[in-house]
Amino acid sequence: MSVKKGSSNPVKLKTIRPSGKTEESIFDLIYDIARQIPRGRVTSYGAIAKAIGSGKSARLVGWAMSGAGRVKPKVPAHRVVNSTGLLSGKLAFKTPTYMQELLEKEGVKVVNDKVLDFKTRFWDPVQELG
């Protein structure tokens, strides 16, 4: 998958062809980007939405992340936070503190459900993958 800076190409939804082959779904694109977030870094729902060419779809990215625990290969959904660094998706994890625990294992400090040094920890997929 290639993500272009400022891309506005429409994303293809998964369709099953008579051959049995499928095209990539929008969730697959979201998961592919999330898998590239480096350990110890975080990104936002909105940043991933921009990277797939749908900058107004942060909620769609959040919805995808809420189901990421059932996806293979694994998706590091704990590295995706809101635009201010808040762990707004923490309730999608097995316990309310598990998202923070995973981030802290990677060296990310979290206080009051918010990533400290969010600006320096932020990974911009448009910049990094573009």
Rank of each mutant, 00 (worst) to 15 (best):
E128N: 13
S83I: 08
L102H: 04
P125Q: 10
K105A: 12
D113G: 09
L103A: 04
G107Y: 00
P96L: 04
F93G: 05
G130V: 10
G107E: 01
L116G: 00
H78Q: 11
E101M: 09
D113W: 11
S83D: 11
G85F: 05
A77S: 14
H78T: 05
Y98C: 04
D117G: 13
D117M: 10
T97G: 11
K109R: 15
D124Y: 04
A92S: 13
G89M: 09
V111L: 10
M99R: 11
L91F: 14
G89W: 05
Q127F: 14
D124L: 09
D117T: 04
V81K: 02
T95Y: 06
E128T: 08
V111M: 09
F122P: 03
L129Q: 06
Y98L: 13
A92K: 06
L103W: 02
A92N: 15
N82G: 13
K105D: 08
L87E: 07
E106R: 01
L116Q: 15
D113I: 03
S83N: 14
L129C: 06
P125N: 04
D117N: 15
T84W: 04
E106S: 00
L116M: 14
N112L: 05
L129Y: 01
S88D: 12
T95W: 05
G107K: 00
S83R: 09
S88T: 14
S88I: 11
P96F: 12
T84I: 14
V110I: 12
K90D: 06
D124R: 11
V81M: 06
P125S: 09
K109L: 00
L91W: 10
W123Q: 06
T95C: 06
E101K: 13
L87K: 02
L86M: 12
K114R: 15
V111G: 01
K109D: 00
W123K: 04
H78A: 12
K109M: 00
V80P: 03
A92W: 03
L116W: 02
L129T: 04
L86T: 14
S83C: 09
L86D: 11
W123P: 04
E106I: 00
E128D: 07
M99D: 07
A92Q: 10
H78C: 07
D113R: 12
P96G: 08
F118V: 02
F93R: 07
A77F: 08
L102M: 13
L102W: 01
G107A: 03
Q100N: 08
L103D: 08
T95A: 07
D124T: 08
G107L: 01
L87G: 04
T120L: 10
E101F: 01
V110L: 05
